[in-house]
Amino acid sequence: MVEIKAILIDDEQSARNVLSNLLERASTNISILDSCNNLESGVQKIKELQPNVVFLDVQMPNYAGYEIARFFDVIPFEIIFVTAYDHYAIKAFELNAIDYLVKPIDRNKLDIALKKLEHKLHQEASLVDYQALLETIKDKNYKKIVIPELGNRHIVNLADIVAIEADGAYSKIHLSTKTTITTSKNLKYFENILVDERLFFRSHRTWIVNLTYTNFLNKTTLNLTLDNGAITAKISRSRISSFENSI
């Protein structure tokens, strides 16, 4: 079993106490190295004690939790964000496959997060996705997505996604490089996280398309030709008018 060394950063003493108690009762082998009430002192303790996970509150005085990127060139630890509820932050974290917990913390969800964490540490997964997340948070420009595939994680520019095709409970990500990634995330998941991205359009119950790659609409066959004929997607008749207004 992997030993997990944690630091808790939250400006509320009661929140730190609750999380500490939950972690002590968890089945995962976890030890709490320290508990801090602001990001600045938390950063000092991280550099001193070198944890492999930080439980980080999103909303704190002086610095928000995600501003930890200002203090590190490389993030050599895993992060689990904790938030009372911040739709803007949660959407960013989901877009980059970062674990998060919503207050009040549900014990079952904490156990799930810890299992994911334990697996990541055991597999020594790459931390490049955190760099992608933190760079996009710095300039508030969410243009990358982390896509899990068979234990690996692909960092993909949104602009390189030609279309997303439903494949049962899975999805196929068709890229401009003529490659395809199959992921266990379903189409609804991608629709939710891309809701504010005007490049993408839900053309059919089984397709999300990138409008910049659309070349031709056939209203008879209800097909969309994408990427100069490399991909043929479906469009529902009821969605044709919305599609024409979007391009």
Rank of each mutant, 00 (worst) to 15 (best):
T177G: 12
G168E: 13
W207G: 02
M60R: 06
T206W: 00
A125L: 10
L127M: 08
N215Y: 07
L19S: 05
T179K: 15
L114H: 00
Y63P: 02
E135N: 15
L101K: 10
K144E: 12
A132E: 06
N245C: 08
N223R: 07
Y88M: 05
T180E: 15
F243G: 04
P76Q: 07
K45M: 04
K138Q: 13
Q131N: 13
A69Y: 15
G168I: 13
N52L: 07
A159W: 04
A166V: 08
D57S: 05
E244V: 14
F190W: 13
P51F: 03
T221I: 03
D99G: 15
L187N: 04
P104W: 06
E48D: 15
P148Y: 01
F77H: 04
K5D: 02
F55S: 03
N186P: 02
F243R: 07
A6D: 09
Y63R: 05
P148S: 01
R239Y: 05
E67A: 13
I9G: 02
L121D: 00
N228C: 09
D106G: 11
L175E: 03
Y85I: 08
E12Q: 11
F93S: 03
S241H: 08
T179L: 10
L134S: 12
H174P: 05
Y100N: 10
I240L: 06
Y189N: 04
E197P: 01
G229S: 02
V74H: 10
L211Q: 05
L19K: 06
I80D: 05
S41P: 00
T28G: 00
I4K: 04
N192Y: 03
F201L: 06
E48W: 00
R16I: 09
S184F: 11
T182W: 05
K143S: 07
L39Y: 08
V82R: 01
R107Y: 14
L110C: 12
C36G: 08
F216M: 01
V209L: 04
S14E: 10
I173P: 12
N223H: 05
I105E: 06
I145L: 10
R70C: 02
H204K: 03
N141Q: 13
L150K: 14
